[in-house]
Design a protein around this nucleic acid. Sequence first.
DNA 1: ATTAAATTAGACCAATTGGTTTAAATCAGA
DNA 2: TCTGATTTAAACCAATTGGTCTAATTTAAT
Lengths: 194, 194
Amino acid sequence: MGYKHNKEEILDTGYHVLRKNGYHGVGINEILKEAGIPKGSFYNFFKSKEDFAIQVMEHHAMDQGNWITRFFEEAKGTPINNLKSFYETLIALNESDAYSSGCLINVISNEVGRTHDSIAHCANDCFLGWINIISREIKKGQDAGEIRKDYSALEIAEYLHSGSYGAFSRMKVTRSRVYLDIWWDMSFTFIQEQ
Amino acid sequence: MGYKHNKEEILDTGYHVLRKNGYHGVGINEILKEAGIPKGSFYNFFKSKEDFAIQVMEHHAMDQGNWITRFFEEAKGTPINNLKSFYETLIALNESDAYSSGCLINVISNEVGRTHDSIAHCANDCFLGWINIISREIKKGQDAGEIRKDYSALEIAEYLHSGSYGAFSRMKVTRSRVYLDIWWDMSFTFIQEQ
DNA sequence: ATTAAATTAGACCAATTGGTTTAAATCAGA
DNA sequence: TCTGATTTAAACCAATTGGTCTAATTTAAT
């Protein structure tokens, strides 16, 4: 049967609350209330708030990583078209909260990346995981002659990652996807084989 | 003679402290201690912490805007080379704190852009100011035949802004400029006239 | 020199912070 | 069914949070 509460659901609540409020923007008590668990359970599962945040990040990174992998597995188009629709989907996902939140890892790492080494390190690991998956599809695009080869697949993946994250940050202050769309259009023009 | 303390020096301290710790990562008392002013003076100058943060952001945006303007005025090269050395300088500026902080406006807006509308709005205004200055140099580059013309100067400026900010976020979690360098190299390859 | 406004100083406040503690309840395995 | 570990529950803690308040001091203008 198991106990009343389990880590997964606390991590899930944590994802939503931290993404919206950031790390210092929300207290443990509010997370507890939101998740409907007592404080004793929380400190039974997590040794500190920082530990909690890291586990939330890792959990989300895994979920998201699986989602990206599946996306490319199931995608029916050519590599560059799959990449285009991947980012289009990623952008569209932000409509649900009026383009106000952005990526959990980006929010947290920008906030406390300087003061919490372990969180900065964890964030980078999360990013690298996603970037590696995406770079494989880029490699396919290069092999198919769709994507330019003067930069490596990994470099292009890093480049797309940086670009999209900057545009996501801009999305957050404008509450609109227009800069993401500019980024998307220009990026895919730039990386295609001439 | 004026009173003992003035707003400028409090705003200056605020810039450094907020850039390092974020908005919720530092309390007013610590800012007060750092700036060496009593609480009464603070609430005489600023009506709230949020008001303070906004004024810090605006003050920094103006300083930085003047610096960018002067940079291009004094730059001796062709437009695209001026832009290259501008971003190179911007990146190099982050060596002093081991690439751990990044841009104040980016940090604050990512942290509380969702929960503090006025801060999000202010951040966007700050960005637009800088982007406009940069886009004028891009326009010169287009007129000189150095920069591609299939996107407007403003679009390219927005694109460079997003890209660099994403790379700055990555800088923060890796404590290194490598992704900024990748971004720099690729971006200038992409935007140059073919 | 007088005055009113601005500034300085810091004690004070209720609310909240992350975290600890203790005890009861619940579980899986022998 | 007994046992030891895990989980639940919430009272409790010192420290800190953003902010208020009052009084003293300093300033610039009259």
